[in-house]
Design a protein around this nucleic acid. Structure first.
Lengths: 223, 223
DNA sequence: TAGATTGTTAATCGATTAACAATC
DNA sequence: TAGATTGTTAATCGATTAACAATC
């Protein structure tokens, strides 16, 4: 970033060349966004970099640095306006639009994910939930979602313009679902099972589990 | 690390001074461990740094570098023995022992976490699950676990030597449970709700959600 | 041996932090 | 004004990567 900025506080500051964010910056911005979203729900109007630091465990200088790279969003002596910071970060992360996702597996994890607020909070819409267990098909999961038969996968993916498949199925079943998603043209798979999925290079798999963090975090907490 | 090592392949290499790992190294080692554990289940005996790289999205040179910092675990031309690498990493992360954890909330997320293999795989034992909903008390969650009444929290934490509290409760209920855990002396809280918890400085809160990753990962996948 | 893969170097790049003037 | 907090600098530290000799 060697672009010399001779003006101060200009609105033009928010229109930077769309460089790809580094992995670390994007991860931290997402984290700030999560905290800000919650802070907003709690009725907080402004927040300081120190408060954000307390909640995210990211150094407060780092936070100010991350943000100031995109514009002067704060007020000295006051902090950041929660509402405006949320929309600024959304702009930076380009998560302003709506994205449709499909959920596989109507077990406990699938239902937990389906009923989480966090997707709606960030512009993601769970438009379908599938299960191979025919006794579950037709069950209502949330107000708007009903478990669909796995036979309709292909049709639903095309009709509903689904860009992400989220796997909350048993480890043994994950590869088969991944194969079907790939065949239907889905390029992004979120894998909450423990399976090591084999997919073609153009498809991205992100594996994550509600429990893996524990291992890593505990190293620091127990030593 | 400026310790000059004149010998090769010695067993003494695994006994390094117990420096605290950097955050990044610990996170990556945990990830390797997760993949290795699964690879072992699938009957794999050796694994190359390139295969580990494919599954973890960590550069293969980085992986070899991370591991070689603690000893010469691999065989040139062959790769790493899965079994022995698992135990080496466990030694490094000091997760060889057993740690008892308590789970709060017997809803979908709580049950999903309780029935996950991943805790058992890494030496954690869910020894209790609580819920304030009296209609859930007594229900069987897994073979060994039955939902307990929240009134017994304090007693159970002391009797069962619980070091970690895992919160899978609604956002509104999270702070109350955190307060009670702090009062009972628990120093590590894993928060799967969206609440921004207030705790004394000696207590560590790790907030995480099965859905937050999506936001960050999607930035890269959609751009 | 021939092929494969580790262990390690060297060079680069980005992350982190303390400190403090600017300013609300 | 006085206190608080941002924006930014400068200096350090650790992460990342390509490349390749060592060696299984």
């Amino acid at each position: 970033m060697n672009f010399q900025e001779p003006f101060r506080g200009g609105a033009a500051l928010s229109e930077r060349p769309p460089e790809r964010l580094s992995l670390g910056v994007a991860a931290r911005l997402s984290r700030y966004l999560q905290v800000l979203t919650q802070a907003k729900k709690m009725g907080k109007e402004t927040i300081s970099s120190q408060e954000l630091a307390d909640y995210t465990h990211v150094n407060s200088t780092q936070i100010r640095r991350d943000l100031s790279g995109f514009g002067k969003f704060g007020k000295r002596g006051v902090g950041y306006n929660v509402d405006s910071l949320v929309s600024q970060i959304r702009k930076i992360l380009r998560t302003a639009g709506q994205h449709n996702i499909a959920l596989f597996g109507a077990g406990h994890l699938g239902r937990a994910i389906a009923s989480s607020d966090i997707f709606a909070d960030h512009g993601f819409r769970v438009v379908a939930i599938f299960d191979t267990d025919s006794s579950k098909v037709g069950e209502e999961v949330t107000g708007q979602l009903t478990v669909r038969t796995y036979d309709d996968v292909r049709k639903v993916i095309e009709e509903e313009d689904i860009v992400v498949g989220v796997l909350a199925v048993p480890t043994e079943a994950a590869q088969k679902v991944a194969d079907d998603l790939v065949a239907a043209g889905v390029k992004i798979i979120f894998n909450y099972s423990e399976a090591l999925l084999q997919v073609p290079p153009e498809v991205t798999v992100h594996t994550s589990s509600p429990a893996v963090d524990l291992l890593y975090a505990l190293y620091f907490y127990l030593t």
